[in-house]
Design a protein around this nucleic acid. Structure first.
Lengths: 342, 342
DNA sequence: CCTGCATCTGTGAGCGTTCACAGTAGAGAA
DNA sequence: TTCTCTACTGTGAACGCTCACAGATGCAGG
């Protein structure tokens, strides 16, 4: 803020900087945008003037002419409020924010829980107020993806969007391989009646982790017993329910691979109430390596998703998309984390 | 997007709407901003034209002239990453986002973990790119508060900013009273050797909850035994350590009031490893009513913070501040939630 | 009739920036 | 010399909107 000739507060503009530096607006603008075709002397004068005046570029004016907003949206579309109780979300949001901050790009947080919210957010995004979207939407057939694509808004999704023909980039952990390594580990430690609690069939995690489970059974020549496969919805409560069902259906099981840590917490609980010792009687493996995995007794053996890398990749890919590159996909490896439960 | 006369893509502007509706820019603008001094006929024509053309106002152009951005920042300043592992954060962020969305105000998420990030964010905010700040910064003496105040940026803090002379609004839960009701409850259920694990002394929760604890001891005529007061830092690990210390120092304690659920989790764990039954031997009370409180066995008796109301109040107060009102403070009541641990 | 007032509408200016273009100076080549 | 090329600089015109102001209209009161 500076005082104008009339004594009123006015913010510092590029004009003020230009006058201070003894050059024209154009030159200041060039310095601001990379400094090509600017003499070292002018460059220095402008930088000094910027420091002296405390000038901060007015992004609104810039956006008005460039047609870009230099900001991106983090859009969360979840019918249930699941993702917000999911600790993974924190890590993802946080890492994205920081990766963007490093490039001076603000992140707009949008939550589309209801249909009305979905439309409002979509309208906002399609209005051109953001340059791209980091999308977290686990359920298949989510219309958001195709609508954004139709409006030619660059999108990078977290997790492979199921059943989409939209041209959309995505970053995902290698769910299938993560599941394989867990089930293989259970098998290697001598377990032969391995059950699984899956995620919803309309989420990548639900589908892929189950596929990995089947892979290993086939690979090891174990029979696939469908009664050992119980669906869950990633919630703790569904883990408890699934474990009860398993105890009833297959009391001889000696291991459970659970598709999320939250569900695994429920499974552990039900097992202990059912008199089973973990890992002596039943080994339990989770998925996510969320904080929940540390708070169980025994600690939960689980599969770590590389959230940090996922976030950085998402940001990198989105910026590339915005810069005009074609959509692409990245699958990142997971890591088995051994604790006491298996 | 529409096609211009040259066949190129152009976004729909207020001109297009005006032409479509057969009125002038000014009239469209008036409709957009409340519709005062606009005839019902013009009003209807403009609304129809907006629907027909799919017009979305260009906020950059608007902001350029109004000098307001119609967006607010959610600024999180945490030296440690504590708040992000704190489930309360989710609820707060989520509710704020939605309360703002209802008023069509986007939320910019900013995280200032390091000094460099703090400065970058401050620079951005002071550049006038947001109209106000929802501040989550628990530690006292945080320079952010006074710096924002100096730049006359409207701020509403979550929790009372300690040791500040800045004119800043805040919303807080009644920590002291919440602590009182918990300790009273422990006392009423017959406990007489009541210990406490506190939060950091530079956070409102650390100070106020301890004060509430002392209040009740005085009120009930119990002696204050300083060896029953152990500091923690809100982390689970610090809860474990504190409980170990207590078991050693005061093996005869029959209750612990813990200043956060996360720490209470650690306390429960240590107690059970130390052979104490909860609640038979030792009653445990937490604070927050976070999801963690549901995942313990037995369920954690705790104090619920009204996060939903806190968020709505924060948003309401920030908008009032932006509209020119003076800073104010709101203290909201907490609620005792009884589960098995006490 | 005119005057005054409230209601409604259109127009020019300007917000702060970038972009396209015109122009200058100096170096090197013909 | 003159011409071309590169490096650099300044200027007018946008971008899409709101604001202030000038006009127009309709109606009541004198």
């Amino acid at each position: 803020m500076i005082r104008g000739t009339d004594g009123k507060r006015r913010s510092v503009t590029i004009h003020d900087v230009a006058r201070e530096a003894g050059v024209s607006r154009g030159t200041v603008s060039r310095v601001l945008n990379g400094g090509h075709y600017v003499s070292p002397a002018a460059q220095a004068a402008v930088n000094a003037a910027i420091r002296k005046t405390g000038y901060v570029v007015n992004r609104h004016a810039r956006s008005l002419i460039t047609g870009k907003s230099d900001s991106v949206a983090f859009l969360l579309t979840e019918p249930q409020e699941r993702f917000f109780e999911d600790p993974n979300f924190n890590v993802l949001l946080r890492a994205c924010t920081q990766a963007l901050a490093a490039r001076d790009i603000p992140l707009l947080l949008m939550i589309a829980g209801t249909e009305a919210e979905r439309r409002r957010n979509l309208r906002y995004i399609e209005g051109g107020h953001v340059d791209g979207v980091l999308l977290v939407s686990s359920h298949s057939g989510d219309p958001v993806v195709s609508e954004l694509d139709a409006a030619s808004v660059p999108v990078v999704a977290c997790g492979k969007p199921l059943g989409q023909r939209a041209r959309v980039s995505y970053v995902a952990a290698d769910d299938r391989d993560g599941a394989r390594s867990m089930v293989r580990y259970l098998h290697d430690s001598g377990r032969r009646r391995i059950a699984t609690v899956t995620g919803p069939a309309d989420t990548p995690g639900g589908v892929e982790r189950l596929a990995g489970y089947r892979d290993v059974l086939a690979e090891c020549g174990l029979p696939v017993d469908e009664s050992l496969i119980v669906p869950g919805d990633y919630s703790r409560a569904s883990g408890e329910a699934a474990a009860e069902l398993l105890l009833e259906r297959a009391p001889d099981m000696d291991a459970v691979f659970v598709a999320s840590d939250l569900m695994a917490q429920g499974v552990l609980d039900t097992l202990s109430r059912g008199g089973r010792r973990v890992p002596e009687d039943v080994a339990v493996g989770g998925f996510d390596d969320s904080p929940a995995a540390l708070s169980t007794r025994p600690g939960l053996t689980t599969v770590r998703q590389p959230w940090d890398r996922i976030s950085t990749e998402m940001v990198r890919m989105l910026l590339a998309r915005i810069a005009g590159e074609e959509p692409s996909a990245v699958i990142l490896p997971t890591e088995l984390v051994r604790r006491g439960s298996a």
